[in-house]
């Protein structure tokens, strides 16, 4: 177990390091700096401004200054929002995105597993067909289409739920549904295919032979094995939900981390940009690690190899 974690931690650090390097260099070689305005600014003033953030000198000098700051766990200061540290900005905005992502994650995994199992057990009936058509439909409708429609129907027309904002439970329902919808479909399709394979296996025949009903056999034995491919998908899913929330945040007017990212690119706010990228990568690495550990817990045959 321990060598596995050490090796994993090592390769994760390398991945994150590469991503930070590429992001920083790309952001700095891009034309246009963080302090460019329409006003004419004298070279001296511009130099002083850049120097204050260690953004003067060659790109490699800037890069090493940034990396050494990162090594000391200092994410730097925003160049756009004065007197804001990147860590403070993230701390303020991340919780909203986390709650939204977590809600969507729970909805997507529970509804997906349930619908997928149902479709597999009722294979080739109208339940199966309509569930799979619905899945393809919801994969084909991106959140920036479903979002405005959900608002138009449930908020404006029926008036059941608020249009936007964040804080109360009723404000969370529509964004979470909108974010989860395509992933319910992905999970349901995965679950259906994997359960169909498992239903043919010997141990399920044994379970039926000893007198379990089909539902009992599936619930007690088959789901545990069939869910493994779904769990592999949950790692990337978690990361998708966090990045995908950008659209939902903008449609439902939620102040979250997704908008920080978009704005930091437009403002050339290089430290905020890199900070957000680091957060996403660290989360992704953690989720994937979690997935591998879950695997061994669910299927005792799988061992973690270093």
């Amino acid at each position: 177990m321990l060598p596995f974690f050490l090796r994993r931690a090592f390769s994760s650090v390398i991945v994150i390091f590469c991503v930070i390097s590429i992001t920083f260099v790309l952001a700095r070689i891009t034309p246009g700096g963080p302090f460019d305005t329409d006003k004419v600014v004298s070279d001296q003033v511009m130099k002083a401004k850049l120097a204050r953030y260690h953004l003067d000198g060659t790109v490699s000098q800037q890069y090493f200054a940034y990396i050494s700051a990162i090594a000391q766990l200092d994410l730097g200061v925003s160049t756009k929002y004065r007197d804001w540290r990147v860590s403070e900005l993230l701390q303020q905005k991340l919780p909203n995105s986390f709650v939204l992502g977590a809600l969507a994650f729970v909805i997507a995994s529970c509804a997906g597993v349930f619908l997928g199992s149902l479709a597999a057990m009722k294979k080739d009936t109208w339940i199966d067909r309509s569930a799979m058509f619905g899945a393809l439909l919801s994969i084909s409708i991106p959140s920036f289409i479903s979002g405005p429609f959900l608002i138009a129907i449930f908020a404006l027309w029926l008036g059941w739920l608020p249009v936007g904002g964040w804080g109360t439970v009723s404000q969370m329902i529509l964004p979470a549904l909108c974010l989860a919808a395509p992933y319910i479909a992905y999970v349901a399709r995965l679950m259906r295919n994997s359960l169909l394979d498992v239903l043919k296996s010997d141990f399920l025949r044994t379970a039926r032979a000893k007198g379990l009903t089909e539902t009992q056999a599936v619930a007690r034995h088959a789901v545990k094995v069939a869910i493994l491919p779904v769990i592999t998908f949950l790692g990337p899913l978690a990361a998708h939900l966090l990045t995908g929330s950008m659209i939902v945040e903008s449609v439902f007017n939620i102040s979250g981390a997704g908008m920080i990212f978009v704005n930091s690119i437009q403002n050339r706010d290089v430290f905020v940009l890199c900070g957000a990228v680091i957060v996403y990568c660290v989360l992704l690495v953690l989720f994937n690690l979690f997935v591998d550990v879950m695997y061994t817990l669910l299927d005792k045959r799988i061992k973690l190899y270093a």
Binding site: V15, A27, V262, Y280, C281
Partner: peptide, 11 residues
């Protein structure tokens, strides 16, 4: 393992 959409934006 790199968040794809973020990378496209930067690119």
């Amino acid at each position: 393992s790199v968040p794809r959409i973020l990378f496209i934006m930067i690119l």
